[in-house]
Design a protein around this nucleic acid. Sequence first.
DNA 1: TGCAGGTTATA
DNA 2: ATAACCTGC
Length: 582
Amino acid sequence: MPPKRKATAPAAERPNGSPPSKKGRPDLHQPHPNAKQTEEFGIVLRQFYPPEMSNERCQAYTDGKLERPIETLQKACRETAEKRRSINVGSAVVHWFKSDLRLHDSRALHTAYQFAKENQVPLIGLYIVSPEDWAAHSISPARVDFTLRTLKRLQQDLGELDIPLHMETQEKRKAIPKRIVELCQLWGAKNLYANIEYEVDELRREAKLVRLCADSDINFTSTHDTCVVTPGALASQQGKQYSVYTPWYRSWLAFLKENPDYLEVSEEPGSNPGNARQQFKDLFDCKVPTAPKTHTLSDEYQKRLEGLYPAGEHEALQRLDNFLEEKGNKYEELRSMLSGENTSVLSPYFACGALSARTAAVTAKRTNKGHLDRYDPGYMTWISELAWRDFYKHVLVNWPFICMNKCFKPENTNIEWEYDKDQFQAWCEGKTGFPIVDAAMRQLRHCAWMHNRTRMVVSSFLTKDLMLDWRRGERYFMENLIDGDFASNHGGWGFGSSTGVDPQPYFRIFNPLRQSERFDPEGEYIRHWVPELREVSDKAIHEPYAKGAAVIAQKNGYPKPIVDHAESRDRALERFKSALQK
DNA sequence: TGCAGGTTATA
DNA sequence: ATAACCTGC
């Protein structure tokens, strides 16, 4: 049992009815209790989100006047370096698994195993479930289920090497560092390894653990692994971090050309010494934790997800090979087409770390005759999608305030958003009357996954056509996607809502009709997800009520469009324009 | 990885 | 009449 924590103080004891905790999730449908305080930052009172970090504070991060979480970690490592050097081997080495649930090509796991092997002590795997963490970060039940299924495979794979995987639940995320130290002490482990996660909470927790370990005579090594190129490694000629994809991508390619070792995959660990099974007998019987009540799935949904996304790194590697072999060279041409399987659907595996981005890049490079940036446009385009994943993580590390409900661009602070509950619900349920939007939202509900093209379409629709706050959409995606990853999801929503990085000389508003006609010309995707429109002709399916299919649509209960795109477009242009003038 | 409104090319 | 192409936002 985890130690009992003090309950949150009742509302009466909190000043000004402030929310229970800083980490608590604001109610989307009520004005936030602190909304008044936001006046001083020029934020409208009606907003439903907690006060945003002030633009001044954001600027201070950008200018390097405030310590970014990555620097907090670096400082902790620096200041404890000497102390850690004097720590001895101990009787075991621990690798703390987080979102790196694989054996193949994990920097920290590889280093941990090498150290264990050299010193002839066993390696132990550790995974800690924190339901509070999942709730605070809006991790979806689908992703929780996928993680737990992946853990099961991981345990089997490690077991074959006589490496145990200890798994346990800690209700409170704050209890995790102390618990890890406790476990290391219990096992006599003096050396702990982990790969870095780049979100703000995670980096600060890592820094705390580095110090806590050093104080407890444990050497904790925290390793860069999840990106192909380490965040912070790429800077412009003026020494600034990039916030625009294209120049960043050029720099990413150049970096990998100059530093080919970044594309070297690390080997899987080998077997533990023969006596490991006796020494840590109990650890081998560990059960995979169960999902908290808030994150359990219906049997039907669970079975479906299991069929769609079988867990484990073997599945991931096989998917990677199959995709590159069969579809990689047609990727540029077909990736946006919505019917049929033209994309790799590897995102769930990247999100929980069953597949390393580096392995994906190396394999694609090999398939593309050894090139990242020339030869076959199909592979090149797919590699640049891997680069997008790196890019958004780099952005997160450099501008950490985006973790705090903040737009990247300060001038977007003043955009006046709508908070219409019914329209938001129609969007969630796929009942907006825009077939392409509805098909996509139903795909999300059914598969916990959505095609990237339609992610752009529905995010643009929510934020431009409905003018609803992009943060509501961002959160809904996290709550429902099996591949929900903070940096990629936030980045995508910044793109779709035009509040993120990637400034354009024009203002981008997707036209749902045009997108539908271009990327689902036969209406196959729509027909699959919107059964009400199955009898409608190819021509009319993108806009049934305007193209002579009103009778069929009505008969089958398909809703009329809840907004007029042209009018909404004008409103969005107006709102963004006036926010810039303030 | 945009759209809209125009012009030009072709039948 | 239609599609392909161009250009400003």
